[in-house]
């Protein structure tokens, strides 16, 4: 019975105040946004904002000057002092970074050179065969053999000189024992070994 009466009853329609408000607000915002955008592009706005900016800069300059003067005599470190230390650290870091960069470049160059040399050698394998190497080294080997002979002869000569010097030493020693004090004034005889 109730269901039938509900069906017969027409639907009630009214304006939704929430939706109206939402629609109205967002469409107004859109229009206002556009209007504001147009306004900020005008010279009047730019000039007006510059007046405010310049007044602020004037105030800021005065404030900075006063603060700097105060901080100069203050026992506390100012942000300028801290910045000075930070600048030193940054410059030190730059130096280390520069060195690191240079080192890396040198290592890279070295690596490139090694690769180049290896490739050069690799490209010409016949130049380092045993025969070619022997041929290339023959003059050096001959010179080495000659040098070796000369050194051997020199050793023989040195041995002879050593023997002679030993003989002279013995002779001098023997003569020193035989000599009397009266004979000291006499002229010494020439050494037989040296004459030889």
């Amino acid at each position: 019975m109730e269901e039938n009466s509900e069906k017969d009853h027409p639907q009630v329609t009214m304006l939704d105040p929430f939706k109206i408000w939402k629609e109205l607000y967002f469409s107004t915002e859109e229009v206002l946004t556009s209007t504001m955008r147009n306004y900020v592009t005008t010279d009047e706005f730019a000039n007006g904002i510059d007046v405010i900016l310049n007044s602020y800069l004037q105030y800021l300059k005065l404030q900075n000057e006063f603060t700097n003067r105060y901080m100069e005599d203050s026992p506390f470190s100012s942000k300028r002092d801290v910045a000075r230390v930070a600048e030193l650290v940054v410059s030190l870091e730059n130096k280390v970074d520069g060195l690191e960069g240079e080192l890396e470049e040198k290592l890279e160059e070295l690596e490139t050179q090694i690769i180049f040399i290896t490739e050069e050698i690799g490209a010409r394998p016949e130049s380092v065969t045993k025969e070619n190497l022997g041929e290339a080294l023959t003059p050096s080997v001959a010179a080495l053999k000659d040098l070796s002979k000369r050194v051997a002869n020199l050793e023989k000569l040195l041995k002879k000189v050593d023997i002679n010097l030993s003989a002279i030493y013995k002779q001098v020693k023997a003569e020193t024992k035989i000599n009397t004090p009266a004979a000291k004034a006499q002229k010494p005889k020439p050494l037989s070994g040296l004459a030889e």
Binding site: E6, H9, Q11, V12, T13, M14, L15, D16, P17, F18, K19, I20, E23
Partner: peptide
Amino acid sequence: DIFISKDSEFQIGESLAQT
């Protein structure tokens, strides 16, 4: 979208309260 349609005034009231 800005209209609200219900079967009765009571339901409209309920809907507005919910929103």
